[in-house]
């Protein structure tokens, strides 16, 4: 059996744009915190979305506490470099990197992996130093996550000497240890997100050593009718009965029945994609289902609802 999801210490949460990646990352962090783990939620794409899910101020590089056991930070590669230089090379902390920052910016644009290594490096360091029991990363979307996760190896290949070289080794090992690190892929039961998830899992398995810890299937629509009830619905939708119903309620019944049919069709189309996802992934990866929330509101309440759904799925 695989390691329990929240017993790992580092979770990267990724997914195609628009599937609820940040919501899921926030919910996993919240769940970890409510289960007594000192948890850090880290946002990598500096969009500030994660703050909305906790209804707090925009995160900074310096983590701030947003709830009991829960801290929030935003990745900032320049700050990460500064911290690295200070901690590892014992350079005095400079308030402003000035020209060094511009040069760094230039080199990191030119040399692939430099920006990524500073991101993964900072996160890995927090894990290794056990500053937190659990670090949940709101990671880049599916198109960019592999580049991020393979950065330590890429740097290893490009940089043959120097201190960075010495430090990419432990980082790569930390990422490869399934008891410590896992990747969570968020999807919705729709065609394109499912295709992208299948492709991503294949790439992660062939190009990285990181363990795919779970697939979170977000926005699963409820089943409206059990088998026998659907026949009842079909009879109700026939003109004779729907007219009688309209008389009884003295209002338009047609749109209400149309909406039910839409809900049934949507659910059914999606079920097919879910089957495809399950078949292609095999039994080794757990699928966690989160129901469609008929709110579309952001905020702590939604995060709590998703966390509860995940908690149920994980059998807590």
């Amino acid at each position: 059996m695989t390691v329990d999801l929240l017993d790992r210490r580092l979770l990267f949460v990724t997914g195609k744009g628009g599937v609820g990646k940040s919501t899921t990352a926030a919910a996993l962090a919240l769940l970890g915190a409510t289960r007594g783990k000192r948890t850090l939620a880290c946002e990598v794409d500096a969009k500030g979305d994660l703050a909305d899910f906790f209804e707090t101020t925009r995160p900074a590089f310096e983590a701030h506490k947003v709830a009991s056991n829960l801290w929030l930070m935003a990745m900032d590669t320049e700050a990460s470099l500064r911290e690295y230089l200070h901690l590892q090379l014992r350079l005095p902390t400079v308030a402003r990197l000035g020209p060094l920052a511009r040069i760094f910016d230039f080199v990191s644009t030119a040399a692939p992996g430099v920006r990524e290594i500073l991101t993964v490096g900072k996160i890995g360091w927090e894990v290794r130093e056990r500053h937190y029991d659990l670090v949940v990363v709101d990671a880049p979307a599916t198109g960019h996550i592999v580049g991020q996760l393979t950065a330590p190896q890429a740097i290893n290949d490009l940089v043959r000497v120097g201190q960075v070289r010495e430090q990419t080794g432990w980082l790569a090992d930390l990422l490869a240890d399934a008891a410590t690190t896992g990747l969570v892929v968020v999807t919705t039961p729709e065609e394109m997100p499912v295709n992208e998830t299948i492709e991503l899992v294949a790439r992660v398995r062939s190009e990285t050593r990181i363990d795919v810890a779970a697939i979170v299937v977000n926005r699963v629509l409820p089943e409206l009718f059990s088998g026998a009830d659907e026949a009842v619905f079909e009879r109700l939708a026939e003109p004779a009965l729907s007219d009688r119903l309209a008389d009884a309620v003295r209002g338009p019944v047609g749109p209400v029945l149309d909406a039910a049919r839409l809900a049934v069709t949507l659910r059914r189309t999606r079920a097919g994609h879910l089957d495809r996802l399950r078949d292609s992934l095999g039994p080794s990866v757990p699928l966690l289902y989160v129901p469609y929330l008929f709110t579309r509101g952001h905020g702590l309440r939604t995060t709590g609802q998703v966390a509860q759904a995940l908690s149920d799925e994980l059998g807590y």
Partner: peptide
């Protein structure tokens, strides 16, 4: 200063590659 730091961090070989 940059060169010294960069050299320590990345190694001069890498800088030469760049």
């Amino acid at each position: 200063p940059f060169y010294q730091v960069a050299d320590r961090v990345l190694g001069s070989q890498f800088l030469q590659d760049i």
